[in-house]
Nucleic acid binder design. Structure first.
Lengths: 349, 349
DNA sequence: AGCCTCCGTGATAGCGTTATCATTGCCCGG
DNA sequence: CCGGGCAATGATAACGCTATCACGGAGGCT
């Protein structure tokens, strides 16, 4: 009754024991074939693999984790469930967890309250017996929370942190290179008078993206007109204001690079209000490739982060530092490359 | 060496056996206390609970699932990792899975190719030994995929399907009621000339939202001017076009209800181009509360689906139909209520 | 030739729970 | 006053896998 229980749903799975019987070997040999690391004679391996095929056997992850004792419980801390990032991040993270037999426990930190609430949350997660945690943006920029996490002695991997942590582990993109690249893209399309909208002053990515822009301009011997650089704060509204400024100039830019998509959308709105056609009269590019980039019209040419990949790598990194000896304080900051998403807001001129 | 293995990360957890020893009872009694269903004397229960506290014991989910044999492997099928929904949906789904000890396996269907590819994917997931699958939008509207899933004999729960499946299981919202509600909200704010932008004709939600609008107008004795209803297709562009039409009218509406946020953003752009201030001159509402709703400026008043809750309930539903006898073909379509998100695009008049 | 090694494999003992059935008291009615 | 029945608890066997160690046999070395 137990084994042939009323589990209507799942076809009863073959176990390693049945495979072993069919192949005429011991369970251990099957296990070795599955984990393909110990020595197994080629002929034996083949027999076992045939049996696996025949029975459509799949190892039971639960049992494997239980017995192996090397599966990790990983926490993923985020603070905004409707974050654009989150879905993709979870996809990458979950995929790697499944592969490696780890378990993901998600922790919602989206509480506006501070300190006390945070303490309680941290207590909860450190009491939950997690092996380590992955910290998603924007919490990965929150020094208050990060330091408490450190205090609690939790091993962490930061996703897209403000700065690569001094003595920590993180996965991020190269903002400078990415901004450089999309600026070069504009230049390659014949643009010379390129305006730039800086992001929020309190986020380090703003500076890095600006630097990338500057670098590309300088490399191409293009001057950056002070009038064509506006301070924004990563909101649609600030982009709109910057656009108003640019398009009121006697000699307006032929292209605008806004440091994120929301601001690019604002610039687009300003352009349209000034009767300018995009991309015919002015080209616009953004950064991040959030949902708004493909919702607007024309759709935005922008730069996209490999979020899923970042989640995937974060799990790897966490597993690695967890298995290292405490002694060698591991410092690893992985930097991934971005992709240029060519849509409809840039025109050759 | 085995138990005190080099698992630097996790503090060695107390096991049920240690709790049992400390409390002076058998493991089984502790298990009973934990699962609080069988009879345990009050005094015993207290002793056990003290021991649990003292040792900071947490049951090992893996072992529990293995032994209990009732943990499910649930697939979640989606086709767009950067979907706005997905993050939230995963959060709700994962939370319920964790509670119930189930395991989530995500399946990315985002391939543009058809038929062959789809067959391969379906083969893969039906071969993976999943107990059932949850189908996220927009795949939950894709008849081709749904019928193949049915053919493969997989138990499914649909999230926000086109129509509640005839003989199936789904979780959705009441589009009619939600549209009615936000229309009433506009009316309550003194609006009488209210325009409406219909969604894509090939999605049934369009019709339902229109019906809700109609209902509310009729109930309040308000006529619906033909000129104030425009056909859109759920894109920003179609919203912009509809807005152009409305605001060129000799007697323009005082409020516009667009059937989704992207179109509302388009209406907003049109209003701004016509020199109309939102919400001072015209109010706008959307539907869905996607990222764009809070990215635009002013931020959009809209209606939001309880996505996380839908994921949570989907897991419940799936577990339920899986435990039912095959005989009683279960038909369950859960309808959740929505929330009105009041932001800055509606003004009392 | 004898011994040591190493390769390929198997037997057995867990991993931390829950299921099942047995066992102990204890209360109650005949 | 004793057996039946029930409430409370325990002992033991799974669950499906991996870790560990043991063992036979084929070389290689002295």
């Amino acid at each position: 009754m137990k084994t042939s229980s009323p589990r209507t749903g799942r076809k009863q799975h073959a176990t390693i024991r049945e495979v072993a019987e069919m192949a005429g070997v011991s369970q251990m040999t099957v296990s070795r074939v599955l984990n393909r690391r110990e020595s197994v004679k080629e002929s034996t391996r083949e027999k076992v693999e045939e049996a696996i095929q025949a029975l459509n056997y799949r190892p039971n992850l639960l049992a494997r984790s239980l017995a192996g004792g090397k599966s990790l419980f990983i926490g993923l801390i985020f603070n905004n469930p409707s974050n654009n990032y989150l879905g993709e991040l979870l996809v990458g993270t979950l995929n790697r967890c499944r592969e490696a037999g780890h378990h993901l426990v998600i922790e919602d930190f989206s509480t506006t309250a501070r300190d006390k609430e945070i303490d309680a949350l941290i207590e909860r997660i450190s009491g939950a017996g997690l092996d380590g945690v992955i910290v998603a943006p924007p919490i990965s920029e929150d020094e208050a929370i990060l330091s408490k996490l450190r205090q609690a002695g939790l091993k962490t991997v930061l996703i897209a942190p403000r700065e690569p942590p001094a003595n920590g582990v993180s996965v991020s993109i190269d903002d400078v290179a990415a901004a450089d690249r999309i600026t070069q893209y504009l230049i390659d399309h014949g643009h010379k008078r390129i305006a730039f909208v800086i992001g929020a002053t309190d986020q380090s990515s703003s500076r890095r993206r600006y630097r990338g822009f500057d670098l590309a301009m300088a490399r191409n011997g293009l001057s950056v007109d002070d009038n064509l650089v506006q301070q924004g704060d990563y909101t649609y509204r600030s982009g709109m204001l910057a656009g108003e400024h640019f398009f009121s100039l006697p000699d307006p830019p032929t292209a605008v690079f806004a440091s994120n998509d929301d601001m690019a959308a604002g610039v687009l709105a300003a352009a349209q209000r000034h009767g300018l056609k995009v991309p015919d009269n002015v080209s616009i590019v953004g950064f991040d490739d959030t949902a708004i980039a493909s919702a607007m019209w024309p759709q935005l040419t922008t730069v996209r982060q490999p979020i899923a990949e970042m989640g995937y790598q974060a799990v790897n990194l966490l597993a690695r530092i967890l298995s290292e000896s405490e002694a060698k304080a591991s410092e690893r900051n992985l930097v991934l490359d971005v992709a240029l998403v060519e849509r409809d807001t840039v025109r050759r001129r």
